[in-house]
Simulated scan of single mutants.
Amino acid sequence: MASIDIQHPHTLAPPRARQAVQEIADKLADRFGAECRWDGDILDFTRSGIDGRIALLPGQVHVTAQLGFLLGAMKGPIEAEIRRVLDERF
């Protein structure tokens, strides 16, 4: 299994940071059928071939994910897209 581990700094207030992560979760659900759920300041997401989480920390967003075999082959483009979205939102 391939894994993704990205730490991205941010300067947003906690409510705005949570809103930004929720917007990302909404897109994951709409575009890829991912199931998303909050557990405190951690958003867990899952769908066939990927299990991950987005943790809101003071001044930082931490994205981790485990990719299944097929998506593991696409790790580079997936990681690049995550970084692009984080740069755009945070």
Rank of each mutant, 00 (worst) to 15 (best):
M1R: 11
M1S: 05
S3P: 03
D5E: 09
D5V: 06
Q7K: 13
Q7L: 11
H8E: 02
T11E: 12
T11N: 09
T11L: 02
A13E: 07
P14K: 03
A17S: 06
A17W: 00
A17T: 09
A20N: 01
V21W: 02
Q22E: 13
Q22H: 12
E23S: 12
E23G: 12
E23L: 07
E23A: 13
I24H: 12
A25Y: 08
A25V: 05
K27Q: 14
L28I: 06
D30C: 04
D30F: 10
D30A: 15
G33T: 07
E35K: 13
C36I: 08
C36N: 13
W38I: 08
W38L: 14
D41T: 12
I42F: 07
L43D: 03
T46R: 11
S48D: 15
G49C: 02
I50R: 06
G52F: 01
R53H: 09
I54V: 12
A55T: 15
L56R: 07
P58R: 08
G59H: 11
Q60L: 12
Q60S: 08
Q60A: 11
V61M: 10
H62N: 03
A65K: 02
Q66H: 12
Q66E: 09
F69M: 07
L71N: 02
G72R: 03
G72S: 04
G72N: 02
A73K: 15
M74L: 14
K75R: 11
G76D: 05
G76K: 14
G76S: 08
G76N: 13
P77L: 01
I78W: 00
E79G: 02
E79M: 03
E79H: 04
A80V: 08
I82V: 04
I82S: 00
V85M: 07
V85I: 14
D87C: 04
E88V: 04
R89A: 02
R89M: 01
F90Y: 03
